[in-house]
Design a protein around this nucleic acid. Structure first.
Lengths: 118, 118
DNA sequence: CCAATTGTTCAATAACTTTTGAACTAAGGA
DNA sequence: TCCTTAGTTCAAAAGTTATTGAACAATTGG
């Protein structure tokens, strides 16, 4: 079982921008970028919305070619398609992520974590 | 008479991305970038849609902080807000424009121009 | 096998966006 | 002043996107 992904050359600029132009999805991408290398599953994003709603937003990101989802057991391991995005749109992902990191208006993944402070 | 523009710090990343995530508006931005320095008025974009429709798209771009419109007589002189965008989101506009330049699927301003070829 | 976990699909609804045409305003030139 | 040019506003229609809950499917652990 694999999920449908566009090929690198099917990734469309307006579509990528439109898909990133949503606070929930931008928060997902920002979190993926902050954990780059670590594949995350959908439940890690539950702070951002209901299970159903995340399924919807994660499908949008995948169908636009922003993320890759690998099926492993009952989980989907989600990663950024940095390689393909950098090839198609050099510098775009980095500048979006850098701007998103500074965006205090975006929802936060892990907002309920226990903070340990010195 | 002046038109409402957001201040630089009111420009929102998701909103800018959403507004750029439309082929007509991306074509407008691409054309503005290709003529940077030269202020253009709305009628120069009539290839991309009806007068009313352009008024709508140009208002979206202005309200998102992507463009600036200066009222001069009955015209609005439209320019990219490159200074503010570069300050708020370094590298973003350049990477979007570079990608848009390569995007053959976008509509073209001046598609009906007479081409002189050697 | 049974139950729990992980995530999808479906249909409904609500909310927004795009596009259109007709009517309008405001400035500039004859 | 009257006409033209440049662009806006408004309301309607069409289309799209986001959110929800209930039902479903597939895998894993006991």
């Amino acid at each position: 079982m694999t999920l449908p992904h566009p090929t690198a050359d099917q990734i469309s600029l307006p579509n990528v921008l439109a898909v990133l132009g949503d606070p929930t999805r931008l928060a997902i991408v920002r979190y993926l970028a902050s954990k780059e290398g670590v594949p995350l599953n959908c439940s890690q994003f539950l702070d951002l919305g209901s299970k159903t709603n995340l399924s919807y937003h994660l499908a949008k990101l995948r169908e636009a070619g922003v993320t890759r989802a690998e099926v492993v057991g009952t989980s989907r391991l989600i990663t950024l398609r940095r390689d393909d995005l950098d090839r198609r749109f050099p510098g775009l992902l980095d500048s979006v992520i850098a701007a998103a990191v500074d965006d205090t208006a975006l929802p936060v993944v892990g907002a309920h974590e226990i903070k340990i402070h010195a």
